[in-house]
């Protein structure tokens, strides 16, 4: 304390000068507009420089954190890009012997659990029972019965059938069906509990039921529900085809369909 007092005494004149200068400058800055604006301009530019420097250091110190954020953002964007790549319409696949024949829907599903749909052409157009039917590149149903010029279609909106699907192109196979309640929602059953699925994931056909080739879009995941103690989870799917407005259909034809049917129906005997 004594040393401080001695220091103050030794520099009393300088301190007095500084104090009087502070008083004078404060009076000047308070009353002189030009002085005030110049002062703020100078101090503003100085504080901007200081703040910029501080911001630079702060950014440098936060580099690891920002890097992690960018990596996370990158992963999210890659995931979205992959989903966009997956969600494409099914195209004619001549390499794997799938071709299409066009048709027209005459009567669509009406929301009743077991209603059938009618379409043209029939047998005269080369349509056969068991063919897969697409609408806008997405799965619509399968040909159940054929007439000369018409055919009856069992759509996805029918409670009496199920479709072999998987979540994503490489997910485990599960069974897609309709519970007859809400026309806008299908149910994917027998999905193992460990499967990673979330809203927006695309559901593709597996190709195992021979009606559709693999990777035809069936719909997108709407909701995933894991019940405690259950081995499987229930997944609700929004169909990709619009059953209320579909008009033009594509009938899927496999060039070796008779052979596939024969082989799949033959009992193997050792």
């Amino acid at each position: 304390m004594r040393n401080l007092w001695l220091l103050l005494q030794r520099n009393a004149f300088t301190l007095a000068f500084i104090a009087l200068m502070a008083v004078s400058l404060s009076v000047l800055l308070r009353n002189d507009g030009a002085a005030r604006s110049s002062w703020f301009q100078q101090t503003g530019s100085v504080s901007y420089m200081i703040d910029k420097q501080r911001h630079g250091w702060s950014n440098y110190l936060r580099l690891a954190e920002q890097n992690a954020e960018l990596a996370e953002e990158n992963a999210d964007l890659r995931s979205r890009l992959l989903s966009m790549d997956l969600a494409v319409e099914w195209q004619e696949d001549t390499v794997r012997h799938w071709t299409v024949r066009s048709g027209m829907l005459i009567k669509g599903p009406d929301g009743k659990p077991r209603s059938s749909s009618l379409a043209t052409p029939g047998r005269d157009g080369g349509i056969e029972t068991g063919m897969g039917v697409l609408s806008g590149g997405a799965a619509f149903g399968t040909v159940e019965e054929i007439g000369e010029a018409h055919c009856r279609i069992l759509t996805l909106m029918h409670t009496g059938t199920s479709w072999s699907c998987r979540i994503g192109r490489l997910g485990p196979v599960a069974s897609l069906g309709w519970d007859g309640v809400d026309m806008g929602l299908l149910q994917l059953r027998d999905v193992p509990r460990h499967v990673q699925a979330q809203r927006g994931d695309t559901v593709f056909s597996s190709g195992y039921d021979l009606r559709f080739p693999p990777d035809v879009i069936m719909g997108t995941v709407f909701d995933v529900e894991r019940q405690s103690g259950a081995d499987f989870m229930s997944v609700t799917v929004v169909p990709a085809a619009d059953f209320t407005a579909s008009r033009h259909l594509e009938f899927l034809v496999h060039q070796a369909d008779s052979e596939r049917t024969a082989l799949s129906s033959t009992d193997l005997r050792p």
Binding site: F17, L20, M21, V23, S24, L25, V27, L28, L29, R30, N31, D32, A35
Partner: peptide, 13 residues
């Protein structure tokens, strides 16, 4: 408004 005060203080110092 303070200009002479600043100048006078500087000169006094």
């Amino acid at each position: 408004y303070g200009q002479h005060m600043v100048a006078g203080t500087v000169l006094g110092g």
